[in-house]
Simulated scan of single mutants.
Amino acid sequence: MSSFMSSLSSQNRSRAARITFPSAVIQQKWPDFQALCERVFKEGAAYEDVRQALRKEDSGDPLVAYILSIVLSYHHFFTFHDVLPHGLNEREGFGYCTWAFIRGAMTLARIEGRSFEMPVVGVSERKNTGRVLLAERQAHPHMADGAAVHGTDQIYLAEAASLSANRDEKRHADLFKLKRDMKDSWISQMREIITTTLPPSRLTVFGSASYRHETSFFAMDFAGVFRLCQIGAMIIPTKQANFANSMRSCVTACLDFVLMMSEQLNERQACKTITYKERLELEEACDALPTTSSTPVKEIKKRKAHKQGPRDQVICRA
């Protein structure tokens, strides 16, 4: 527990830790969603059944177009295999499968998505603050596998591993990186917002981490301390059999997620203009936020080779 949380009474600590989520639901935003799912995602239906069912639907309907885009992303793989082939690299697995679910949902919610090697603006700002760029080399930012952008703000960041990843170290490293990047993005966006307007009462940034077939969705805000909460998850379909059940679950999870992002954007757009005096006060508060520390570096200790000869030498690995 942080020193801030420890200083609070039990009642106030409970209030500080409470996280509320937007009230919008899929059925309110897209009233035809449930009926479409019942027609297209029959219980236990295989990939080809879903594809054939979509042919009977109006391709001009945005919901149908979203589902169809996912089915088409899988089409090449399922032409040759009953399951997604083993050994797809990170870009193939994330780009054609996982990202198809997420970006399609963002498009429906009118949120622009970008993918692959996206520089994280907040990290760049944090690393280069205080540097004399005329005399010092600019530090490189982290790169995100996916992002949602609104103007200059990266309101959502994605980290992904390959679908065949098998190292827990990769999973933990991606989560660690994502959380730090979300914090840097929150600070960056808060500093940008307060130049002209009062920030929303619960400024939030979003993220996701994909490891193998599972994706976890996160939200981060600030209430005296930075608070990170997992707000959803999905496991993408990997085989033609029973494709409908898995796909429906993923589509629902992604639509729920983007509705939260959409409501956050609405809150930001409704912010009131502030005076210069208020801006100075808010900037002073931002300066008091804890700065993200430098990325820890894993030490590699070399063992000395035995005197007996080259056969006894040890190969050092990270």
Rank of each mutant, 00 (worst) to 15 (best):
K298Q: 14
L108T: 01
K307G: 12
E278L: 13
A147Q: 05
R18W: 09
T291K: 15
G93L: 10
I315G: 09
V205T: 07
P31F: 03
D312R: 15
K42G: 10
K298S: 12
T20K: 08
K304Q: 15
S249E: 11
K183S: 04
H76W: 12
E169G: 12
P22T: 10
W99C: 04
V123N: 11
M247N: 07
G207W: 00
V83G: 13
A160Q: 00
A148Y: 04
D168E: 13
M118C: 08
S185K: 02
A45C: 04
R39Y: 12
D32E: 11
F218L: 12
I111T: 03
S201A: 12
C37N: 06
G122N: 01
K307M: 15
R55D: 10
I193M: 02
L163V: 08
D32S: 09
Q189M: 11
R303E: 12
Q52M: 10
E117G: 05
P85E: 04
I187Y: 01
T295P: 11
L282A: 05
N266G: 10
A219K: 10
P290I: 12
L68Q: 14
I193N: 04
A244P: 05
K298F: 09
I194W: 04
Q269S: 11
W99L: 03
T107I: 09
V64R: 01
L255W: 02
A65H: 09
Y211W: 13
K301R: 13
D181W: 02
W186G: 00
A305E: 11
P85S: 06
S210D: 08
N128Y: 00
R110M: 05
E278C: 08
S293K: 14
V120D: 02
G122K: 01
P290Q: 09
I231M: 02
I102D: 08
V40L: 04
I193F: 00
N166E: 10
R137Q: 07
A270M: 06
G151D: 04
D287S: 15
E38I: 02
T196W: 12
T275H: 08
H150C: 07
S208D: 09
R103M: 08
R39C: 05
Y276E: 13
R303I: 13
K272P: 01
G113P: 02
L198D: 06
Q11G: 00
V120P: 00
S69N: 04
G207P: 02
K29D: 00
H172V: 13
A219V: 02
L63R: 05
N12F: 06
H140W: 06
F257A: 01
E48P: 10
S208E: 03
L259Y: 06
R180M: 09
I70K: 03
